[in-house]
Amino acid sequence: CHSECLGNCSQPDDPTKCVACRNFYLDGRCVETCPPPYYHFQDWRCVNFSFCQDLHHKCKNSRRQGCHQYVIHNNKCIPECPSGYTMNSSNLLCTPCLGPCPKVCHLLEGEKTIDSVTSAQELRGCTVINGSLIINIRGGNNLAAELEANLGLIEEISGYLKIRRSYALVSLSFFRKLRLIRGETLEIGNYSFYALDNQNLRQLWDWSKHNLTITQGKLFFHYNPKLCLSEIHKMEEVSGTKGRQERNDIALKTNGDQASCENELLKFSYIRTSFDKILLRWEPYWPPDFRDLLGFMLFYKEAPYQNVTEFDGQDACGSNSWTVVDIDPPLRSNDPKSQNHPGWLMRGLKPWTQYAIFVKTLVTFSDERRTYGAKSDIIYVQTDATNPSVPLDPISVSNSSSQIILKWKPPSDPNGNITHYLVFWERQAEDSELFELDYCLKGLKLPSRTWSPPFESEDSQKHNQSEYEDSAGECCSCPKTDSQILKELEESSFRKTFEDYLHNVVFVPRKT
C-alpha cells in the first residue's frame, strides 16, 4: 500500500485506493498535508475557505447554543480562536489581540433580562453583547459592586439597553466600559436606550469621564423622579442622539420631579488639616426662599486615587461607600458681607490618608415646582503625618564578641513616609551569675543571650482551647457569634421535631 494509506488498500502504491488515510483526505486521495488554498479540518480532512465560511455563517444565523462559528488559524479551520487571539470578521482569520481579548457573548432569543446578581454573573467577562440587555433589578445585597464585577467589562451592545423598574439602582456607572450601543435591534418605538419607572436612579454616568455613542435609535425617559433633566440632556449631547427624540420621548413632568437638581456650584473657602482632623468651610448658599434650606450634607471617604465619582458603590438597598454628615444651616444675616460661612470639623480620621470630599445642599421643593440647590466639586484632601507606631517583631542576635545583629519589621501604621529608623542602645553591667558559677561542674549549661522565638506554653494553649472559665478566673470563653447562636437554635429545633416524629412513629394507638 501507499505510504499515506492506513489499515489496508485495494490497489498497491495508489493513494486513492486506501481504506483510511494516515494524515489527511483531499478529493478522494490521501495526502501528507493540505496544500494551499485548503485548510486542515478536524485533523483528517482538507477543506477550502468557502466550506469553513459556510459553517461560520450557519452557526451565526441559527443562534443555536453550542454550535461553533468556525475560524481560520495556522492553516486550520477550527471552532474558535485560541487564547490571546480574536477573529477578523472580513476573512475569519485569528489575529493577536492588542491588550485583553474581546469576548463576544451571543444571547438566546436576542435579549437577556438581568433581574438578579445570579443572572448578571452569566455575563461575567463579556466585552461584546450580541443582542439586547434588559435591566430589571428590584433589590439585593452589595448590588453596585456585584454588577460592576460582572457587567463592568461590557464595551458594546449590538441591540438596545433597557432599564425598567430597577428600584435598587442609583447610577449606571457599573457599566464602566460601555462605549457603544449599535441599535441594530430596537425596542418598540425605535428606541435604543429605554429608561422607565426607576424610582431611585439619580445618575446615568459621570459624563466628564465617560463617552457613549448610540449609532441608531432614540432615547426614552419616563417616570424617573430623581433623575434630573440636565442629566438626560447631557446624554443626548454626548451620545449623538440630540435631535432624534420626539416631543413625548422625554417626559418633562415625570423626570426629576422629586430630585434636588443642583444648578449652582458650592466653593470651599477654608481648608485646614491635622493628622486626624480636617476643618472645612464653604461659601454660604440661600435659595430664593431661605426657609427652603434644610441644611447641608457632607460626604467623605478614603480615596487612594483621584478618580472618585459621587455615586460609586451606591445602591438604593443601603450600600453606600460614603460617610454622610448632616449639618444645620448657619444663622442668616441681613448683611451679605457678614454672612457666616458654614463648615464642619471632621474628626477621627487616619493620618497621612487622602480623602475625597464634597458637600451639597438639602432643600425642600418650592411652590413653583422649581428645584434649587448647590453642590461642590469633589475635592481631595490629605491629612498630615504623625509619629508612626512601633516597629514590629524586633530580633537581636550576637554573632561574635563585638557585634549584635538587630532586625525588625516595619510598623503596622507608618502614618507617613518613613525615611529612617533611630536605634538606641545602652551598655549593661555583666551578670554576677557568670562569676559565681563553678565551671568545672559536669552538665553545666552556660547562660545564653542568643534570641529564641517566643512560644506559647501548654497552660496558655489549654486556656485558649477551654470553653469555660478556669477556677483562677484568668480566662473566659469568647462570646458566641450570631451565626453560632442561630445554628444552635436550628439544631435544637431539629432535635425537638425529630423526637416528636419518633414518638408518633414508635407509639401507635392500640386498636379498641
Rank of each mutant, 00 (worst) to 15 (best):
226 K>R: 12
206 D>L: 10
353 T>G: 14
372 Y>P: 07
238 V>Q: 14
251 A>P: 13
257 D>I: 14
212 L>F: 04
149 A>R: 13
311 F>H: 10
265 L>C: 12
407 K>T: 04
131 G>A: 08
239 S>I: 11
226 K>V: 07
324 V>W: 11
298 L>M: 13
189 G>E: 12
183 G>A: 03
294 L>M: 09
224 N>K: 00
299 F>Q: 14
266 L>Y: 02
229 L>G: 03
161 L>H: 00
325 V>A: 13
220 F>T: 13
290 F>Q: 04
131 G>M: 02
260 S>H: 10
273 T>I: 10
366 S>L: 04
204 L>P: 03
306 Q>L: 10
333 S>G: 10
260 S>F: 05
332 R>P: 08
167 Y>I: 13
278 I>N: 01
208 S>R: 13
383 T>S: 08
405 I>R: 05
264 E>L: 06
332 R>Q: 06
380 Y>Q: 05
199 Q>V: 13
238 V>T: 05
190 N>G: 11
204 L>H: 01
387 N>R: 08
323 T>S: 12
315 D>K: 01
333 S>H: 10
115 D>W: 02
214 I>C: 12
132 S>Y: 02
127 T>Y: 07
315 D>E: 02
311 F>M: 07
213 T>D: 10
191 Y>V: 07
377 D>K: 12
358 F>V: 06
249 D>Y: 05
266 L>M: 06
335 D>F: 06
378 I>N: 02
325 V>R: 07
408 W>V: 03
158 S>W: 13
314 Q>F: 04
245 Q>T: 13
225 P>G: 05
265 L>K: 08
310 E>Y: 14
219 L>Q: 04
349 L>V: 07
382 Q>V: 03
266 L>N: 02
257 D>K: 10
359 V>E: 00
172 L>Y: 02
139 G>E: 01
132 S>L: 00
182 R>Q: 12
184 E>I: 09
411 P>N: 00
183 G>F: 06
273 T>D: 03
323 T>D: 04
175 F>L: 14
174 F>M: 05
266 L>A: 05
322 W>M: 02
128 V>Q: 02
187 E>G: 06
371 T>W: 07
256 G>W: 04
401 S>N: 14
411 P>V: 06
126 C>K: 01
393 D>H: 15
301 K>G: 10
387 N>Y: 08
331 L>H: 11
147 L>D: 02
367 D>Y: 12
208 S>G: 13
298 L>S: 02
394 P>R: 06
134 I>S: 08
268 F>G: 00
229 L>V: 15
335 D>E: 14
277 K>W: 14
356 A>I: 08
310 E>S: 11
222 H>E: 02
316 A>E: 15
402 S>W: 09
319 S>R: 07
296 F>P: 01
398 S>M: 02
